[in-house]
Design a protein around this nucleic acid. Structure first.
Length: 352
DNA sequence: AAAGCGGGGCA
DNA sequence: TGCCCAGCTTT
């Protein structure tokens, strides 16, 4: 049997029942696809359900506030996805009269939609014959055909893209695309794939040559860099100082406590002597360490975060005019990075 | 072409 | 620990 037909048959027998598979509505499929970028199905599933409930139509999404969307996205990571979705939804209201496009060539122009996502939405919603190429497809193709070209170079992507298009069952693009991804996720897994019961083990290069654990090939990225964050808990009765992060760094537009970032790890005495600390808090307040340096790992950074409460703080004696104080009861309406909302939860300042 | 962007799960 | 996950955008 043909490669594509074997994969499709396997899919019909082994597929998971996932909510976004019961529709051809491109809006719903878009929600699921953006959420699932670089994200496991189990992690994304509860977010998908929340977004469908909160924004049943693309109009609802477009009319929401960015802060509300980010709050719903809180904890999922790669927050530019949420900001780009908001822009895309507004573009669809303006340029497509609120009708979510199904054509690859229209989808690819929307913010946050790249080649993979455009192919996925187009094929799932209207069976347009565009092959998806995600981490699963790279792995299945690399192993089955024995492709040792790296998957994260321009040359490699071009090569794999060509093979993916050749293997696509053009008359059944929707089912085939979902099938090969599901096959990669459940059967041809990164670690310990289930080669013993694989329907395409005959013909698999990697199994034959004992290279399953060496394919696909990926060029390693740069090592993570270390950053040292000193967060300050500044209370004013039933309020607490919060600030919104800017652009060109992690967690854009999300909220955190007043922060001093320092290039190296330092202790409280050194911290109080820094000019930035004096500008923010003066020199006659007391500090109490609430949480000693906690390592927060991102894909490309290690953040060592300390949480320090400022006592006896008189803002009138500093150059900084006023902090943005937020009622503690309103904290849960703000979108915060994981590092911040877990701190709040663990110290019972608010639930999330 | 390479870097930047989260958070979680698993061996 | 290192690697990977239904990748995209910016530099």
């Amino acid at each position: 049997m043909l490669f594509s037909q074997e994969i499709i048959q396997w899919y019909h027998q082994n597929k998971r029942d996932l909510p976004w598979r019961n529709t051809t509505d491109p809006y719903i499929i878009w929600l699921s696809e953006i959420i699932l970028q670089q994200t496991r199905v189990e992690q994304g599933l509860p977010y998908f359900n929340r977004f469908v409930a909160a924004y049943p139509t693309v109009r609802d999404f477009a009319e929401a506030a960015e802060g509300e969307i980010l709050r719903l996205w809180q904890g999922l990571g790669y927050y530019s996805r949420a900001r780009n979705m908001h822009k895309a939804a507004q573009t669809i209201m303006q340029q497509y009269d609120g009708i979510f496009p199904k054509e690859y060539n229209s989808l690819i122009k929307l913010p946050g939609i790249g080649e993979y996502t455009a192919a996925a939405i187009a094929s799932f919603s209207s069976n347009e014959p565009k092959a998806v190429l995600d981490g699963n497809v790279f792995r299945v193709l690399a192993r089955y055909f024995g492709i040792s070209e790296a998957i994260n170079t321009g040359k490699g992507k071009k090569l794999f893209s060509k093979i993916a298009e050749e293997m696509l069952d053009k008359a059944n693009a929707s089912v085939y695309n979902q099938a090969i991804m599901e096959f990669g996720a459940l059967q041809c897994k990164p670690q310990s794939p289930n080669c013993a019961v694989c329907p395409i083990s005959i013909g698999c290069y990697a199994l034959r040559e004992n290279k399953v654990n060496f394919l696909p090939v990926k060029i390693k990225g740069k090592a993570s860099r270390d950053r040292y964050f000193y967060y300050f808990i500044v209370r004013d009765q039933d309020k607490i100082a919060m600030q919104k992060r800017g652009s060109k760094d992690i967690w854009e537009n999300m909220y955190e406590f007043p922060l001093i970032e320092y290039p190296i790890a330092i202790d409280l005495v050194q911290l109080k002597e820094t000019s930035i600390f004096r500008q923010l808090f003066g020199s006659d307040c007391e500090l109490e360490v609430i949480s000693t340096p906690k390592k927060h790992v991102l894909s490309h950074q290690n953040i060592y975060a300390s949480f320090i409460e400022i006592k006896n703080f008189n803002h009138l004696k500093t150059k900084k005019k006023v902090w943005n104080y937020v009622f503690i009861k309103d904290l849960d309406t703000l979108a915060k990075p994981k590092l911040i909302f877990t701190f709040l939860r663990d110290h019972i300042i608010c639930n999330n």
